[in-house]
Amino acid sequence: MSTLSLIGQILFAGLAIGGVYTLVALGIVLIYRATNVVNFAQGDFTMLGAYVLFALSNGEKINFFVAFLLALVVMAVLGLLFELGVYYPLRNRSFLPVVIATIGASIMFQNGALAIFGPMPQKVRPVIYASGNGGITLGGVFFDYQYIVILVVTLALVLLQYLFFEYTVLGKKMQATSQDKDMARMLGIPVSIMIALTYIYSTVIGGLSGMLVAPIFFVTHKMGVMLGLKAFAATICGGFGDVRGAILGGLALGVIESFGAAFISTVYKDAFSLLLLLLFLLIRPQGIFGEKVAEKA
């Protein structure tokens, strides 16, 4: 096996995992932009999405793709409940109570899932049902179909999201809300509804990421923990509150991890992204794209 194909394999694995980080990071960024809340339960939306899809598609009573859509709807409802139960009562308080409430929610989600679905890891079928390896080998590099789906969905979603926020009235309203709530309110935009929509959307893409990684990662109640954390790292490296940052940060993190594990140490794999994150925080806390915000006196 040639070195080139080895590197290609590592790169692809990194990009694919990075795509997953990106999807989770997008949810974090959107909620942060809209409400200044860092949602520590975002990783668990991934887990919930995967479990919902598992519950709906298990036994194949419903067509897989119908189940997929239904799961997205369920996630939307969950997002609304999350907004009403965790964010809304605390909307006028400082960031800390909200952060801790999201941590509480995260504990609740994980253990709720454990109580309902049990500890046994569950399997969900991939989107593209292929016999054999579930992928294709090109030039010595194995491409898992599911990873390709993840990358395609991530890119499509990023594009759609861009179009939505730039070219639709609702998107513009949501964007106005995230930029200046008071101003938006004065312009007659129903701010509470916009925020609720943001939560719903973030929950749905969080859930979507879970449904996409489920065939690869398997579904466990802890599957969102490390993902959420890595997504945070990605968000911060990219610049909190910046969508471009989430995308670049997510992909870069995946690739760095993948190469770090292959060429430095598999044991300290998780430490690379965190060290990178610490470096960013200490040297350039605003991230790649963020702007430094000074407190106005």
Binding site: M1, L6, Q9, I10, A13, I17, I216, F217, K222, M226, S258, A261, A262, T266, V267, K269, D270
Partner: peptide, 20 residues
């Protein structure tokens, strides 16, 4: 002789090392 952390999701690095 290669260690990995529990809950690893991507063993590409391990497999590469095995191949090498």
């Amino acid at each position: 002789d290669l260690g990995y952390n529990n809950d690893e999701k991507d063993f590409t690095a391990v497999i590469n090392a095995l191949k090498k």
